[in-house]
């Protein structure tokens, strides 16, 4: 991922996630994998809706800078698990840890501040605001000018310029001045990723980023995800139904069924796992 270094030094504290430091980071990680807490960990995470247990004692470890996919049939609890990790739902029991810190009691906004960025299964943008403004708001949230009411919002020029850079990254720069609602569905999904990148989160939760997209639009999203992964500076949690995509992009895959974790392994091991094949209507899981 291309990040421009040194923008807005006055507003944004030096981020460790810049291109020239990635090299350093990956070396550092190799040395210290053993004593470093995982980016995200869930322990016995459970949530009930009435009698229905949507997520049932799920314990998962998301290693830093890895991409773990979460798959499972419809209604398996994937989105609910994301909602528990990002704080939209409070679990009935169990805990969520971010870098070893218990964040179970925190609201979604606080978790975002701590570095959990979230995209949604159903497109979730600000429809009447401009494309640029959608991304600019994500950037504004990072720099703590949100309580300032005596300056004009456009006086924070670096936020706007940075937002435009991010739109370039997802190939949406031509649309910057249009209302987000005028974008095509595929463009809106790209916009969501630009919003997420604007948050600069250490952990990215992507809930079916290609859902509802036409086939031609999928490779662009895949490429963006692969770019993010290649930069090796963010942990990615991905929910997807497109199996080929998952097999190519994932480091590990966790499989949920009826709220329970039935498998958590490498892509090869998961695709050969009998329980997983059974979960998918008894049919063998097709490779890409």
């Amino acid at each position: 991922m291309k990040e421009s270094v040194g923008w807005a030094p006055s507003l944004i504290p030096d981020s460790p996630r810049t291109t020239d430091q990635i090299e350093f980071h990956s070396i550092y990680i190799k040395k210290s994998t053993m004593d470093k807490a995982p980016a995200i960990e869930t322990r016995d995470l459970t949530i009930r809706f009435g009698g229905n247990i949507a997520v049932n004692e799920v314990s998962l470890v998301f290693e830093e800078y890895h991409l773990k996919s979460i798959i499972g049939p419809n209604g398996a609890g994937k989105t609910t698990l994301f909602n528990l990790i990002s704080g939209q739902y409070k679990p009935t029991s169990g805990r969520v840890y971010l870098n070893g810190e218990d964040v179970t009691g925190l609201d979604p906004a606080s978790r975002t501040k701590l570095g959990i960025g979230r995209s949604f299964q159903l497109t979730n943008i600000f429809p009447t605001l401009t494309v640029l403004e959608n991304v600019r708001l994500a950037l504004q949230s990072k720099v703590d000018v949100g309580m300032v009411f005596w300056h004009h919002w456009r006086s924070y020029t670096e936020l706007e310029d940075r937002a435009y850079d991010l739109l370039k990254q997802v190939l949406l720069e031509d649309r910057w001045r249009y209302a987000a609602s005028t974008l095509t569905h595929g463009e809106q999904r790209k916009l969501e990723i630009a919003i997420l990148l604007g948050l600069d989160p250490a952990v990215l939760l992507l809930d079916e980023p290609t859902a509802g997209m036409s086939i031609e639009e999928v490779p662009a999203i895949l490429e963006i995800i692969q770019d993010i992964k290649a930069a090796h500076n963010r942990t990615i949690l991905l929910v997807e139904h497109k199996f080929d995509m998952i097999m190519t992009v994932s480091d590990t895959i966790a499989v949920l069924k009826e709220g329970q974790l039935i498998c958590d392994d490498t892509p090869e091991a998961v695709s050969n796992n009998e329980k997983v094949q059974a979960a998918y209507l008894g049919g063998g899981v097709k490779h890409g």
């Binding site: 990002s86 939209q88 609201d107 979604p108 906004a109 606080s110 975002t112 501040k113 979230r118 949604f120 979730n124 943008i125 600000f126 429809p127 009447t128 605001l129 403004e133 600019r136 708001l137 994500a138 504004q140 949230s141 990072k142 000018v145 949100g146 309580m147 300032v148 009411f149 005596w150 300056h151 004009h152 919002w153 924070y156 919003i195 948050l199």
Partner: peptide, 26 residues
């Protein structure tokens, strides 16, 4: 000035989509 400040922009975003606003950390 209040509605044209960063605060005003956030208020506008909350009106537009509160869930997204919260998920941005506001």
């Amino acid at each position: 000035r209040f509605v044209r400040s960063p605060v005003g922009r956030v208020l506008k975003s909350i009106r537009d989509n509160e869930q997204r606003s919260t998920a941005l950390g506001y």
